[in-house]
Design a binder for these strands. Structure first.
Lengths: 226, 226
DNA sequence: AAATATTTGTCCGTATGTATC
DNA sequence: TGATACATACGGACAAATATT
């Protein structure tokens, strides 16, 4: 029995603004009408309008500035990770496993492209990150920052923001549920060192093998838990 | 020079509530404090608090009901597609290509699992969808609904919500930029019919081939555009 | 450089609708 | 039925940041 009228105003306003952006083909840098104008146009109070428009701002679609107005943003890969994260926290842990599985498929699927894309500078960066991991005190804390930086570096040259957003979000899940995936530090560092070694040797099959080792390790552990 | 103090209140409140949910380990079905309580707790007006909390509601993290309060939701794969879509509209068309590329990698990566997971009922559904495509008037309109339904059906049994969210989001991009990928209807239907044929024949290598045909077609066209 | 207008940021108060007991 | 708790929605007011003249 879900009535059309039952929908809350701020939901409708949100949809209205969304379709406004589409129908007016607004691009990065373009301005939206002012709050007053939109409120009057839609026949709602400024308060309700703001509830909708602030959603757009918080998730990263627009930026608002006093005295200026609201401007459409360019793509920002961070928002997706926070969105994903926000949804994950409200639910059970199974999603973390699903997210990891998708990440595994993606990273293996992009293996060839990433292998071909990396230059010496990137490989040096990767080696440095592994070195830093060895000096890192514990698995918690900044060790995880090194881990994500490692994977980001691998796909940086591909310039695929959607891929980057996903790698980030998967990482964010892992970070918050790290106890589930807690593992031996030496093994974890070794998994990354193998990737670097394969890159230095310019051996793609070895690279793929290292990646599979990296992900299979988690994967098997996950399956055994069930 | 981005000062910490320069941050707007509703951003900070949004972060506060986010970490509140995490630190209190709120799960699906749990209740948040009332608006008044949270506003007082954080020392902000109810207005600002609502701008933050309505963001959480609109992106699907919580649901609010008058007389009840705010309840944490379970995962909803729809929100991700709308987030993705919202970010895409603000930027150039390159992201559509990136999104398609990710989708291709994902669908091919999950091919084996999806092939093994499908039962007769699913294959019948797929065939019916292809039949409907043949009766569909045009590439626009409900033809696209049949297309996404086809792909959803393929991965339904895997129960991976993250995968589903991505397939959905990629589809939503495609729908809005369909002119870019406009193509011959007969060829498009044939691409799906081949997938069904392979499933009926229980021939995995044929299935994989059909999938590659399905995606390569777009892929090549995309490359040629550059 | 200074005054003014524009636009968003933040707050308050109040009335209404809806679910629960 | 009534009372209570809570979210929904509106309007007004002033502050702060930015742009314009």
């Amino acid at each position: 029995m879900k009535n059309i009228k039952s929908k809350k105003l701020y939901f409708k306003v949100f949809e209205e603004i969304k379709s406004y952006i589409v129908s007016h083909n607004l691009q990065s840098g373009d301005r939206l009408p002012t709050e007053m104008e939109m409120a009057e146009l839609l026949g709602v109070s400024r308060n309700v309008l703001r509830e909708a428009i602030k959603t757009l701002e918080i998730i990263g679609v627009v930026t608002s500035k006093p005295g200026v107005g609201m401007i459409v943003n360019s793509f920002n890969s961070n928002f997706l990770s926070s969105c994903m994260f926000l949804n994950l926290i409200g639910d059970n842990k199974e999603l973390v496993g699903q997210s990891q599985e998708v990440r595994t498929v993606m990273e293996l699927g992009f293996a060839k492209k990433s292998f071909d894309s990396m230059i010496k500078e990137d490989i040096d960066t990767l080696q440095k990150l592994v070195d830093d991991m060895n000096f890192s005190e514990t698995l918690n804390g900044d060790y995880y920052l090194l881990d994500i930086e490692f994977h980001r570096t691998m796909y940086k040259r591909l310039q695929n923001h959607v891929l980057s957003a996903f790698v980030d979000s998967a990482w964010e899940c892992e970070r918050y549920y790290k106890s589930m995936f807690a593992q031996n530090k030496e093994i974890n560092i070794d998994k990354h060192q193998r990737i670097v070694d394969a890159l230095v040797a310019k051996d793609y099959s070895k690279y793929l093998e290292a990646l599979e080792y990296h992900f299979n390790y988690n994967y098997k552990a996950k399956i055994q838990q069930k």
